[in-house]
């Protein structure tokens, strides 16, 4: 069984992001990057499925040179090979352009299963996987928290709203976007890290795939700090002073002490 996991690299969760001078993106220079959160669950699920079904997991990542670190990490965790779609501009691309590029890069692989995370923690469109499925003519399911391969099809458990879940079945090949939660995230072992060095990483240039890179139907005009809607008292600085001020608030405003 051939399984792809679409994996995105995003700023680390703790990054103190600042806007760039032109106000059209963040200042990336001092920022570190890591694998997107729900993509970890996608990778974990891909590895689980592969283990039980004699599968091979291919990591598919688009982005500039820095994404190679995340690819290495995924290979160290047990993925078998990778496709790196080299694209300097990926951060500002719209999801449809991203999906077209990814679909063009992987269409000849004939994957039985394509997995992605539910959404990225940077732009969070939550569309790329669904669009790849549509372009490649595959059925899909989103918000998936459990999977079970059956004969020629896959049964999945989807998260619904209000604490409900739903089971659905899809014929293979299919695309699933994975919600965080029920699987354990694998760690890279020393052996895994050693083995990762020998695993093949195919390099593809985004520009060579014949996709029109016109930026899509939506143009990012500006990015900015949102205006607060609520009046907020800000405490910062010395911890002892903060604590004294907080106690006062808890007593006199929150009235819980």
């Amino acid at each position: 069984m051939k399984i792809a996991i679409l994996l995105k690299q995003v700023p680390v969760k703790d990054a103190m992001l600042e806007l760039n001078d032109s106000g059209n993106w963040i200042e990336e220079d001092d920022v570190q990057f890591e694998i997107n959160d729900s993509d970890h669950y996608g990778l974990a699920e891909a590895l689980n499925i592969a283990k039980e079904n004699e599968g091979e997991v291919t990591v598919v990542t688009m982005g500039p040179d820095r994404v190679k670190d995340s690819i290495k990490q995924a290979l160290a965790k047990g993925a078998h090979r990778a496709i790196h779609i080299d694209d300097e501009e990926v951060s500002s691309s719209d999801p449809l352009t991203c999906a077209k590029i990814i679909a063009a890069a992987i269409k000849d692989e004939n994957f039985d299963l394509i997995l992605s995370g539910l959404q990225s923690d940077d732009l969070g469109f939550g569309q790329t996987g669904v669009l790849v499925a549509e372009i490649l003519g595959m059925p899909h399911a989103t918000l998936v928290v459990e999977t079970e391969i059956l004969d020629g099809k896959i049964k999945v458990k989807r998260e619904l709203e209000g604490g409900w879940f739903q089971n659905v079945e899809l014929p293979l090949p299919a695309m699933l976007s994975i919600q965080s939660g029920l699987t354990d995230i694998p760690y890279a072992t020393i052996k895994g890290i050693m083995m990762a060095k020998k695993k093949p990483v195919a390099e593809v240039e985004a520009d060579d795939l014949g996709v029109e890179l016109d930026g899509g139907a939506f143009k990012l005009e500006k990015i900015y700090t949102p205006v607060k809607s609520k009046e907020t008292t800000v405490f910062e600085g010395d911890a002892d002073t903060i604590v004294a001020q907080l106690i006062d608030k808890l007593k006199n405003e929150a009235k819980v002490l």
Partner: peptide, 29 residues
């Protein structure tokens, strides 16, 4: 993180390291 969006809806925003502040807060409470 001074940009943390939780601050947009907070009555009191404490910008600081929780590991430093919380133990002191516990004692003060």
């Amino acid at each position: 993180d001074p940009h943390a969006p939780i601050f947009d809806i907070a009555d009191v925003a404490v910008v600081g390291d929780l590991f430093e502040i919380v133990p002191k807060l516990t004692e003060a409470v």
